[in-house]
């Protein structure tokens, strides 16, 4: 248990640092790599909180899937088409204001809520609980999500169709 706060703070520092780097780096490709680092750091925090299922899904879908697709888009537009894209953050002041506002809001919320000093231990198998909840209590949102994905898939196919 002594290692847990250490892991949490190290991962948090990594997460915040890489998240800042995502928006502040000029080089778009580096920005994506920092995004991958930030997403992996989030998975690490999940892992430290014993949410192993969430950590694995985070890696599989975000760090493995989403980042790959973003890279694909960048490579196709920048290196193969030959157009150089640099990231510009012109709205940096208003961005800082909004982010600061959200931070203050979250902090006041946390300060008001009484938080237990130690995390209560997990009793059941989280993965099993997630699976059972998905197919009992949350089956309607789950199915709606499937319909949404199907619509997205059909839309993508429509746009990708060859010209007649």
């Amino acid at each position: 248990m002594t290692l847990e706060p250490l892991a949490f703070w190290a991962l948090s520092a990594l997460l915040v640092g890489s998240a800042l780097a995502v928006v502040l780096t000029k080089n778009l490709f580096h920005s994506v790599l920092y995004l991958a680092l930030a997403l992996t750091g989030t998975a690490g925090i999940f892992l430290a909180l014993e949410a192993e299922f969430l950590a694995a899904v985070q890696l599989l879908l975000y760090a493995g899937g989403v980042v790959t697709i973003v890279v694909f888009a960048i490579v196709v537009t920048e290196r193969l088409v030959g157009e150089r894209i640099t990231q510009t953050s012109r709205q940096i002041v208003s961005g800082v204001v909004v982010a600061g506002g959200v931070l203050i809001g979250v902090l006041t919320f946390i300060a008001r809520a009484p938080l237990p000093a130690t995390r209560p231990p997990l009793v059941a198998d989280v993965t099993q609980a997630i699976g059972q909840l998905l197919f009992s209590r949350f089956v309607l949102p789950f199915e709606l999500l499937a319909v949404l994905f199907l619509a997205a898939l059909l839309g993508a196919t429509y746009f990708a169709r060859p010209d007649e």
Partner: peptide, 21 residues
């Protein structure tokens, strides 16, 4: 881990990051 195979699949999917780097 109780999600052993998922961990395996997730981590092995990360290899692509090094590859495109």
């Amino acid at each position: 881990l109780n999600i052993g195979i998922l961990f395996f699949l997730a981590v092995s999917a990360m290899e692509i990051v090094g590859l495109f780097m």
